[in-house]
Amino acid sequence: MKISLALVGVIASAIAPIADAQQTPGVFYNFRVLSLYQNYQPAVTVTEPRATSTCDPVSRTCTGQITAPPGFAFTPNTISLFGGPVADPSGHQEVLNLDGQVLLDQGIAFWTLTYGGFADNLCSQVQCLAENGLPQTAAAINWPLQNGGTYTDYITFAQFSTLLARPYPVPISAGLTLRLKVTAPLELTGTVPPGAPIEATLGFRDTNGNPIVPPQEVTVKPGETASLDLNPDAVAVLTGLLKVVVPVVAPPAGAASVAPLEAALELFNAEDQQGSMLAVHRPEPAEPVPAPSFGPQGLAPGQTIALLVSALPPGNPSHPPEPCIATLRFADKSGNPVGPSMPVDLLPGR
């Protein structure tokens, strides 16, 4: 069942009755409307903001409106209602109810989404699935245009990207460039309609959370990659022999969440272009992994290994931060402790 909600020839589907009004605490969604042109020449130029939205955590309702793009043309087949069941983006696949209405004479689409309290309504029961069988957590409004093309607005409400929820500190050598790259997957995990662009803000922070370079807003379509470089000059101002930075993939301005992206880090020497990939972060699983996942690390004479820990930063409404209370140590291949251990007690974001 395709959940994309076109204005032409699309039904207003009903959600299953809500049996239990109990609300789910700690979940708050913010919505973002992204736009995409399709098959329209000349290209539509949109200069004014066309969409607004707001969420009320008390009533657990989000509302928004979208004005028609330039060149929009109603047809006899245009209908004025849209809506249907969509999936909770937190990964639990609970059902959220989306209702929408278009004022034909004004060319404005209004939508309302209610969330929370749907623990007994799962997507497997009410078919809030995309064509690929995965939960669909976004809706599309296809505006027919005068020249026969289509302008699509996506109402997205997605999980945080991995680097946003897991901003690992990364060591970097003096003289090297660290490149943060994000790619919109060709095959999305069902959280964004096919072809939808994804917006994000890329940045680098120091270990105190301060920006090292101005953040950069990017927009990528499936298969596209955007990047931000941290050059040696910016690294040189950091203190300590081992320079440590925190790459961050944050929501775009005005939004509280960003759709899942694959993020990669590459370290290279700008002079000879030699470098290596450090890590690839894919959209995080619904639940944190309960055990360490380090592999045994080879160490040669003259080398030092550093184990870095930090606490999750605040700002992820679906995943409240917790302190990091732990003990750090190293073990040899027999499991015996090597060197000293160190207790840590870090507040969220430290």
Partner: peptide
């Protein structure tokens, strides 16, 4: 309740080169 982000790096002891 405790949640930690952890990473590990090897670098040259004298130069700091990762």
């Amino acid at each position: 309740i405790s949640e930690c982000l952890a990473s590990a790096a090897v670098y040259e002891s004298h130069t700091g080169r990762t």
